[in-house]
């Protein structure tokens, strides 16, 4: 039977078509949101625009896939993947902390771009090959049906994880002693060191946690995304765009921005007549949001 058993009765209605498409973009949106929140987390605590964030997570996700291929149970493999993500994050963090602690944000961003180039090359080398790796599904099944779209448990889990991470990050930054220390650290690392905050160790913790969270996110979404290492690493583009929407400050706005971008992507797939320019739509939306939201900003901090 054409179209399967569950074609919505009123699919001819444009509104419903768009709603369906938007809901279909939810899975991607959750991933963007989670990665965006991780980017904000790293920026607020160690003031690095983390271009290499998704590549760090990709390292963890591929470690997971390769370990499971070696016969490890999925749960153990996922744990190992998260640990690898944390370890690679700490490795990158060590480079940034050791040599660039006092550098301006633009230098740190340039370092992150350079590291992305290197890490992607190494990652493709290790994980590439004639047969891409198979990503087992950590979370299976679908949670509920909305507008004719099955919302999978994996999408729900990514969204939930994003919300959880947002809550935890907010609480941690605003309420905990360590959080306050870390905020001091991001503002003036040397001054923070002078008043006895273990700057180096705390920064590495931030990188580790960011790496672990990104790795977990990518492990969950990878089975639906036909991943190769480079493609996963370049998820940093929508992630950073989401973070921009939240001004690299506000976790909740970032979360909403990420989800919205996924839904816009979904919508773009059904808008007729855009052709190959469809992929540019999310970019234009981001640009518009940025121009509007930052219309007051003028000076680079302290420059």
């Amino acid at each position: 039977m054409p179209g399967g058993q569950a074609r919505p009765a009123i699919s001819g209605l444009m509104m419903n078509l768009y709603l369906t498409a938007a809901v279909a973009g939810l899975a991607a949106g959750g991933a963007y949101a989670l990665l965006g929140v991780c980017a904000v987390f790293t920026y607020r605590l160690v003031s690095v625009v983390n271009f290499v964030g998704a590549a760090i997570g990709a390292a963890g996700a591929f470690a997971f896939a390769m370990l499971v291929e070696q016969g490890l149970p999925i749960g153990v493999g996922a744990l190992a993947g998260v640990i690898v993500g944390a370890a690679v994050g700490i490795g990158v963090g060590a480079i940034v902390t050791k040599w660039f602690a006092e550098s301006p944000a633009s230098t740190k961003a340039a370092v992150a771009v350079a590291l992305l180039v290197g890490l992607a090359a190494i990652g493709l080398r290790i994980t590439g090959g004639q047969h891409p790796h198979d990503f087992p599904e950590l979370i299976r099944g679908s949670a509920f049906r909305l507008a004719g779209v099955e919302v999978t448990n994996a999408s729900v889990a990514t969204l939930a994880l994003a919300v959880l991470f947002t809550l935890a990050a907010n609480l941690f930054l605003d309420r905990s002693h360590t959080g306050l220390q870390l905020r001091a650290l991001s503002e003036r690392p040397v001054a923070a060191e002078l008043i006895g905050i273990p700057v180096h160790v705390l920064s590495l913790w931030v990188w580790g946690v960011g790496g672990a969270a990104t790795a977990l996110a990518l492990i969950i979404i990878a089975p639906q995304r036909a991943p190769n290492f480079l493609a996963l690493s370049l998820l940093v583009v929508p992630a950073l765009a989401a973070a921009l929407i939240g001004f690299f400050r506000n976790f909740w706005v970032t979360l909403v921005g990420g989800v919205a971008m996924g839904m816009i992507e979904g919508l773009a797939s059904v808008i007729p007549g855009l052709g190959e320019y469809r992929t540019a739509l999310p970019f234009l939306v981001i640009l518009a949001v940025l121009l509007w939201s930052q219309r007051g900003a003028r000076w680079d901090d302290a420059r």
């Binding site: 179209g3 699919s11 498409a21 973009g25 779209v149 036909a226 996924g262 979904g266």
Partner: peptide, 13 residues
């Protein structure tokens, strides 16, 4: 590489 859900749904509809 990306989420194929919108495209699968589009084919169905």
């Amino acid at each position: 590489s990306g989420d194929y859900t919108p495209f699968v749904i589009k084919a169905r509809d």
